[in-house]
Design a protein around this nucleic acid. Structure first.
Length: 107
DNA sequence: GGAGTGACACGGA
DNA sequence: GTCCGTGCCACTC
C-alpha cells in the first residue's frame, strides 16, 4: 500500500538520472511512473525534496518548457543559469527547442 | 474527518 | 499557436 513511497522515490530516482544538457517534463515522469494524470505530484515531490537532497530539479520543466519552478529556487536566475551552463538555450524563462533537449527515463 | 493547496497536463475555443 | 476550465493524488491545517 505504500505506493506513495514508491512514487516518491521513483520521481527522485528519475530526476537524478537526467543527464546534463537534457531536460524532461512533469508529465513524462508522472506517466512513466503510472500517474499520468497526476503531473502535479511530480512537482509536489520536488517541492518537498528541494533543499533536502541533491536533485537537479532545474532539469524538470513543464510541457511548454517554461521554468515554472525557478521561483522556488534561491535566485530567480539560478535555474536558468544552471541550464544555460549545460548548453540549454533559454529565453524569457522558457527553453528554446525543448524537443531537442527533451529526455526520457527509458534512455 | 473535511476542505484547501500545489514546481502540471489535457481538451476545447 | 495561446488561454480557460477541469481533473489528478497526496499533504497540511
Amino acid at each position: 500500500m505504500p505506493n506513495t513511497q514508491n512514487f516518491y522515490e521513483k520521481v527522485l530516482d528519475i530526476v537524478r538520472q537526467i543527464p546534463p544538457g537534457r531536460v524532461t517534463t512533469y508529465g513524462i515522469i508522472a506517466g512513466y511512473i503510472g500517474r499520468k494524470g497526476s503531473a502535479r505530484m511530480v512537482g509536489w515531490v520536488l517541492n518537498k525534496q528541494k533543499g533536502q537532497s541533491n536533485i537537479p530539479a532545474h532539469r524538470v520543466v513543464n510541457r511548454k518548457g517554461l521554468l515554472t519552478g525557478k521561483m522556488h529556487f534561491e535566485g530567480i536566475n539560478l535555474m536558468q543559469e544552471l541550464l544555460e551552463n549545460e548548453g540549454v538555450v533559454i529565453v524569457n524563462n522558457q527553453i528554446v527547442d525543448l524537443d531537442r533537449y527533451l529526455w526520457y527515463p527509458e534512455d
